[in-house]
Design a protein around this nucleic acid. Structure first.
Length: 584
RNA sequence: GGGCGCAUAGUGUAGUGGAUAUCACGCUGGCCUUCUAAGCCGGCAACCGGGGUUCGAAUCCCCGUGUGCCCGCCA
């Protein structure tokens, strides 16, 4: 509870001074209790016991009695088991939120943030594994915006090098018949008729086919390396050919992401840094590093053995023997450029990039360029094993979305509400997209998980529809009250009675601030997911216990609490990419 | 061979030094003539093993086990 902490901190600091205790010894004395039903904040006195050589139970008593006259009367202080517990008066919270327009994050420092996410090679449709990146990244974008940061959501487009090269070669050299034959021989399924007009699904087959035949055809390999080399030298005609090859795929991928509400503010292509010359000058700068080394064929690297890198190879190559650059080198130039656009950088990367990212960070240090923050996530596996676009062992996002929409529609029909077709379609789309996002977001990013259809399709408690449902309920109340031509009156908080459910809800509403801030500080959207589930649960209990409309009369206080909740759930949904429906 | 993640009820998860370990599915007992039951209120059930640091460890350190990822002049 940030607001309470701000109210307590000066008094606690004053007290520490009186006791002659260095504030810095105790990293942070005021803590959030593990169990929020005990109190809002607490001070465990065990660490102090050692310094003061006194029983923690007594210290707690001393602290509480000397704090009491330093704090406003709305803060209740009690002691228990060697803890000093603080509780903020519920009426105080109610007044702050409902009448005084208390603004969240007003005392927090804001940033300009550039979040680079997804950046998947444009060689095929999104599968569930790749989508974890986009969903996490987009959630961080939204959470940062809700916090008040200015955010650029950026996609780094791989428009050169091997992967696009293979694609471009295939589109130029293989016919549809060739592709179908090659893939059939490998046992890769034919194109799903649903996506017969979607270019990412079509063109990926050329990419897959080329990957199969190039393995035992030296001529193809030769043509490919010629093509790739030219792209890496910035050859305009080759780059433009590459662009024509992947652009329709990228558009298909973006279409898929837009179904999940994911959008970008800018796209940066990798070739930019070859063309503008920064890659070359960076390679020259790296040669001045103390870590610099040269291989027999003239390739250049940094030796990272002394920098905490170990394994079969500790070398970080930044230039090939033929003088061309590598992906990671271009990444260095890219980071340099990103820093000109924001004061904080966040990259969303798969766990396979952990080493690479470390190497890039060390190289950036050598170049005296700041390091980005990185959110790593683990892969989503299939029960059959790893997902791979190349091998066709994937669950496509397009299929998952379609299935989820069907499932949602089925549930809507089962419930038998009279919702007209157009509206149920809208609801099913919103439910599907929100549920898919939430099911990925709620799990801690570093935890790998196995994709199971039944889990991905879960619309029960612990899912986005659960939160959406609470929002819809609050909207329904709002609608009913408005129909009553209700007039707002001022509330005398000294007289209002707040029951347990309403009090719990109000405390939870206040913690929106803490939870969201923690989530963006640690780059972990799952924290805020947990909070939103709790908020919805608390709203549901409130909804049951606190009647708002009774015999055409509106309980003004309860209505205000409901309205505040409605708006806050809406904001929270937006911050996670859940679509807050008015009815469902 | 080396490095880096991860390990919590039957299952999936939250929790990065503090009070009785979270939530959900599951199993189970209640609640719809009353503001949307996609809901609410109860019950059952867990910190991988072994050492260590600490007043205090699921959390930090070491050893082991299991599991994922990486160690390319690919991206």
């Amino acid at each position: 509870m940030n607001i309470l902490k701000r109210l307590i901190t000066p008094a606690v600091n004053e007290l520490l001074e009186e006791l002659n205790i260095d504030k810095n010894i105790l990293d942070d004395l005021i803590e959030k209790p593990r169990d929020l039903t005990v109190c809002d904040l607490c001070i465990p006195c065990f660490a102090l016991a050692k310094i003061l050589k006194k029983n923690p139970v007594e210290i707690a008593k001393d602290i509480s009695s000397s704090l009491k006259n330093k704090l406003i009367p709305e803060i209740f202080v009690i002691t228990k088991n060697g803890y000093v517990n603080f509780n903020l008066d519920t009426k105080f919270i109610a007044k702050k939120l409902l009448d005084e327009n208390y603004e969240f994050f007003q005392n927090s420092i804001k940033n300009d943030v550039l979040i680079e996410h997804t950046s998947a090679n444009p060689n095929g449709p999104f599968h569930v594994g790749r989508a974890r990146n986009a969903i996490l990244g987009d959630a961080l974008v939204r959470l940062n915006r809700e916090f008040g940061n200015k955010v650029i959501a950026e996609y780094y487009v791989d428009d050169m090098g091997k992967q696009v090269g293979i694609l471009a070669w295939a589109l130029e050299n293989l016919t549809e018949k060739d592709v179908d034959e090659i893939l059939e021989n490998e046992g890769i399924e034919s194109l799903n008729p649903t996506w017969i007009n979607k270019e990412d699904h079509i063109r990926v087959r050329w990419y897959q086919a080329a990957n199969i035949i190039r393995k035992d055809d030296k001529k193809i390999e030769l043509e490919l390396s010629e093509l790739i080399k030219k792209s890496e030298e910035g050859d305009e005609s080759v780059l433009s050919k590459f662009n024509d090859s992947f652009k329709p795929i990228l558009n298909g991928m973006l279409e898929t992401l837009s179904k999940l509400g994911i959008k970008y503010d800018s796209f940066t292509t990798e070739s930019k840094f070859i063309i503008n010359g920064r890659v070359n000058s960076i390679m020259e700068e790296l040669k001045k590093s103390k870590l610099y080394g040269k291989a027999e064929n003239g390739a250049n690297y940094l030796e990272l053995a002394g920098k905490g890198v170990s394994g079969k190879s500790t070398k970080f190559f930044f230039q090939r023997g033929d003088g061309s650059s590598l992906y990671a080198t271009r990444d260095l130039a890219y980071h340099e450029w990103k820093w000109t656009r924001a004061s904080k950088l966040i990259n969303i990367l798969g766990e396979d990039h952990r080493l690479q990212s470390k190497q890039v960070s060390i190289a950036l240090e050598e170049l005296k360029i700041k390091k980005p923050e990185v959110l790593f996530y683990s892969f989503i596996k299939l029960p059959e094993g790893k997902m791979s676009t190349r091998r066709g062992n994937v669950v496509f996002m397009d299929d998952l979305i379609a299935e989820a929409e069907n499932m949602a529609m089925k549930i809507i029909n089962q419930r038998g509400h009279n919702i007209e077709d157009k509206r149920s379609l809208e609801i099913s789309k919103a439910v599907a997209s929100s549920a898919i996002r939430f099911n990925i977001l709620k799990v801690s990013p570093e935890k790998g998980f196995t994709f199971k259809w039944e889990d991905a399709m879960s619309f029960d408690a612990d899912s986005a529809p659960f939160i959406m449902y609470s929002h819809a309920r609050s909207c329904s109340i709002n609608k009913k009250v408005n129909e009553l031509k209700f007039e707002e009156i001022n509330i005398d908080y000294s007289k209002v009675e707040i029951n347990k459910s309403a009090a719990n809800l109000l405390r939870t509403l206040m913690r929106f601030e803490d939870s969201l801030e923690k989530s963006i500080t640690e780059n972990k959207p799952n924290h805020f997911c947990t909070f939103m589930l709790e908020l919805a649960t608390k709203y549901n209990s409130f909804y049951r216990d606190c009647i708002i409309i009774e015999n055409q009369n509106v309980n003004v206080f309860h209505y205000k609490v409901s309205e505040y909740s409605r708006k806050l759930i809406y904001r929270g949904c937006n911050a996670l990419g859940i679509i807050p429906l008015v009815s469902m």
